[in-house]
Every structure is written in C-alpha cells, then in structure tokens.
Write a protein that binds this DNA or RNA. Structure first.
Lengths: 267, 267
DNA sequence: CGAAAAGTTGATCTACATCAACGTGCGTGG
DNA sequence: CCACGCACGTTGATGTAGATCAACTTTTCG
C-alpha cells in the first residue's frame, strides 16, 4: 500500500521536490496554484454577488481567488438551483470554462472577494512554453471532478443530517490545509438558503438538521461561525471516507487521532 | 463491429486537422479520443463485471473503450452506492485517476467490453513531446466534470420522472454523436437496479417512474432497448438545457426541430 | 429607523422509501 | 432437453424523510 504512512512529518514537501507537478499534487487546488502564481497580476476586489463566470458564456480569463468565498451553481429555468461546489481562497475559477467552449455553470461571489485575473488567451502559449502548466491544470480539473462527484454521492445517497455533516467536514478540511481554519472553528459565510441549494434540501429542513446536529453535540453554526464540538462523532455521521482528502492533508495530531479512533470502530 | 461509427464520412476528422485540439472539442470524449488514437495498442476484451479502475488504488493504465458500457460509481461502506456516470464506447477511463494519485471512484463494466490499454506511465513523456495531448486530456477532464455536475443537478433538484427523462436524453445524445444510436431507439444495458443507484432513487420508484413515462407516451424501456416516443415532450420533461450538449452536436433536422419547438414554448 | 434578508417554528402534505410477495426470462448443469 | 436457480422485473400495502405553506422574529444594512 502506498503512502498511508504519509501523515507523519511532512514527506509531502519532500516528495514534491522530487516529482513532476501532477504527481506532487498532494493538496487541493491551493497547492497547484503555486505553479500558476506567476500568472497572477495585481489583486483586485469584487463585491458580493458579482459573477466570476456565467453559464453559457465564454470565459476570457482565469481568476485566482485570494480572499473570500464564492459558489459554483446551475440555475434551472423554473427557479430551482443547485450549488455544485464552494470556491475558497486559493481556488481557481474559469479553468474548465476555458477548456470547454463556454461555461457550463455560473460562479457567484458569496462575499466581497479578492482575485487576480489572468487572460485565458495566454494559457495556450503558456502551455506550449511550460508543459507543466497543462499538467497542473489537468490535475486541478480532475480534483474538481472528484469534489463534485463526492457531492453527488452526498445528495444522492445520504440523509439530510449526513449531508450537512459531510459538507462541514469537507469545507473544514479544505480550509485547514490552507491554514484558513482553526482547530475547531471556522468562518462559513453561507446562508441556510444557499446551504439548502447545495444539499438538495429545503431551507426549513436544513434548519432542522442543523439543530439536530447541535443537539447531538456535534457541530454548531451561529451566524457565519461554525464550531466543531465532537470531531470523531462528526466524522462518523459524515461517513467520511478517509481516503477522500486525508492523505492529502498535513494532519494535526488531534485529527489523526480522530481518524484513528474512527477506523478503530467495529461498525 | 465497434467503431463502425468513428471513421469514414466524419466531417469531424476534417475539422480536426484544421483546429487546435482543445478548441476543436466539438463533441464528447469520443472525439478528443482520436488524438490519442495512436496510444491505443491492440484491442482486448474484458468480461461484464470487470473493474477497469478501483477506488483507492493507483491507476497504471488508461483504457480507451471501443465497445460496451461501463459505469463509474462510488460505494459507501454500508452498501449504499451512487453511480456517477456511464462510460460509453469512445470514452476514456483512467485519465483523472492518473492525474490524481489514486482513483477516487470505481469503474465497472456493465457488459462485456472491448478496450485498448495504454500505460499511464508514458503519458508524461507524451505530454512533453505533444503538448496538445495535455490540452486534450484537460478538455476531457473538464467535460467529465460537466457531466457529473449536470447529474448532480438532476439528483439534487429534479423529481424522479424528470431525472429518468434527463438521463435518457443525455445518453441518447452522447450515443447519437458517435453514431451509436438510431433516431428513436438505442440499446441501454442498464438494469433498474443500477438506474436506481444512478438517480438516487429506489428500484421500485424507478420502475414506477418508467411506467409513468411510458403511459405519458414519452419513452419506453423494454429489457435493454429504449424507444423515444415523443422527443419534444421528453426534452421538456427533462428540462433539458439546450446549451448543455447541443451546440456540441451535429444536429439532425428532427432534433433541431425538437429543440426549436421547445424553445418556442412560452413555458 | 424602516425595509429587506436571514432565521425560527408549527401544521400539514406527499414523493419516495421500505417491505414483502410474486412473476418471468434465461443461463447452466445434470 | 428439462429443471432448477437466479437475476431481474412487477405489484400492492404501508411508513417516513423531507417538502410546502404560512406565519412570526431577529439581524443586517442602507
């Protein structure tokens, strides 16, 4: 078995130096982003509600999100909406839309957001000059598909409470890798309404599931702050697949312990 | 005989020579596959039930599916299962798993299946030699994400009948582009059980929705054959986004008409 | 300070799940 | 060639997670 040992110190960084970009992809978008860092121009700020990418339209530039949250979503003509994924600081927007002819979904800023833009036009040149860029982008696209796929499992086969638990853990992990979350708490500027559209539930039901989770002493969400009260418990309810993001993470002792405890369970 | 579709008349091939890989992506995976044709070794046959890719394991080779169906899926420890997507002739398996460290999902053959394999090992060399390959792969990955995303909308925000309708149309379109579907009918070697796991429904409910669609005179599925009885009607129920795959398709007159009629509706 | 956005809460309804049979085609082995 | 078994499909009865509706409260923000 490969790299289950990986958690230890930081073999990640070491391996990273030794292997080509796509191999070293030992993190979420954030990491590979460093490869494209030189792409970034001057940072600029955009207001909450701004569209970074618009379904059906060609995408002329890639955004590197420096700060703030956004969501990828698709809207049905009758008003129903499905949130595909959340965009966190360090993520790229517009890669796939650039590769395809036109964007297949919309990206909307959930908060005021800081981005740097890079004209997609020049990507092809870049790829020619630096093949590693293509590989990095490929890796990012694959990663995105993985996240959406996991989300699909959530919505297709898990209960309301499970879905919320799973989403919280996933966001927490993604933020944690980037040093954007504390041990037990993080900011999540997502309304219950948006949450409902992400989880395929009604607002009312989201509210009740949240209360359920709070009552069970697992997580709480007040306003924008999420507090994890019982990590092992939460992981279990979330039915979290360790392999999904774990080997990708520099694990804290507490986290490693939580996962271990989880694995130890006979279940 | 597989690939009876692929070759001859294809205006595809002509356009292909004229435009850069990622731009010419005017179809589903099948098309871009031609770029990797030279990768393909000798075709070989694998039995129904065979795993082409296995969640949690590294993928050492890419498969080009020449004939037969497969499914991408994720299985939860408690036995629940979610089908992410169906793999049709012309699709590639293993691209993303190669880019990531290990496969994040499993791919299982739904029928006996004909594939040619190509060691992923050599992909990196190839990318160095032919940057276009990277771009083609990027495009494929983006496409895959788009399909899964659309599927997520289905499961998250559509009713049982709508989900089935949407899936049928999507498969029909994907097959049609490759010349693998007739005007009103095509083979769909997918059991109700598998269908249920794809749509996030129970088998019983799938059965009832199918009967509903048949009673409404829209589609019928007997054994493995699907027959579309009323295309415009079906498209409407499916809430099919024309932009999703249409501009990507060489449209038949009838299809164009169906879409037009659909667009004309005041809804 | 007023209005809109976000969150709370209870009553009611329904789409879909679950359970439990039974039918049917078909491949395999005797 | 039959028959047995099994995978797949069909059908009804019943249960429930979650939707919908309809207030009302609290927070946010211009």
């Amino acid at each position: 078995m490969f790299q289950s040992n990986e958690g230890e110190s930081s073999p990640i960084t070491q391996e990273a130096r030794a292997t080509p970009v796509c191999r070293r992809g030992h993190s979420v978008d954030g990491l590979a982003t460093t490869d494209l860092q030189f792409l970034a121009g001057r940072a600029e700020i955009m207001p909450k509600g701004q569209l970074l990418e618009s379904e059906g339209w060609p995408q002329k530039e890639i955004y590197v999100v420096k700060d703030g949250w956004a969501m990828r979503h698709k809207d049905l003509p009758d008003g129903r909406r499905q949130v595909l994924d959340f965009v966190l600081p360090g993520d790229l927007v517009g890669v796939e839309a650039g590769a395809l002819q036109r964007a297949d979904h919309t990206v909307t800023a959930l908060t005021d957001i800081v981005v740097s833009r890079f004209p997609f036009q020049r990507i092809e040149d870049l790829i020619r000059e630096h093949p590693r860029v293509a590989t990095a982008l490929l890796w990012i696209a694959a990663r995105q598909r993985a996240v959406v796929a996991e989300h699909l499992v959530d919505v297709g086969r898990r209960s309301g409470v499970e879905r919320i638990a799973h989403l919280v853990v996933e966001l927490w992990l993604r933020l944690k890798t980037r040093g954007l979350a504390a041990e037990h708490t993080f900011r999540m500027p997502v309304t219950q309404d948006t949450l409902a559209d992400a989880l395929g539930l009604s607002v009312v039901h989201v509210y009740r599931c949240l209360r359920e989770l709070a009552r069970a002493g697992l997580v709480e969400k007040n306003r924008e702050m999420v507090t994890i009260r019982d990590l092992p418990g939460l992981l279990e309810v979330a039915g979290f697949e360790a392999a999904y993001l774990t080997d990708v993470l520099p694990m804290s002792d507490e986290m490693a312990e939580a996962f271990a405890r989880l694995g130890a369970k006979p279940t």
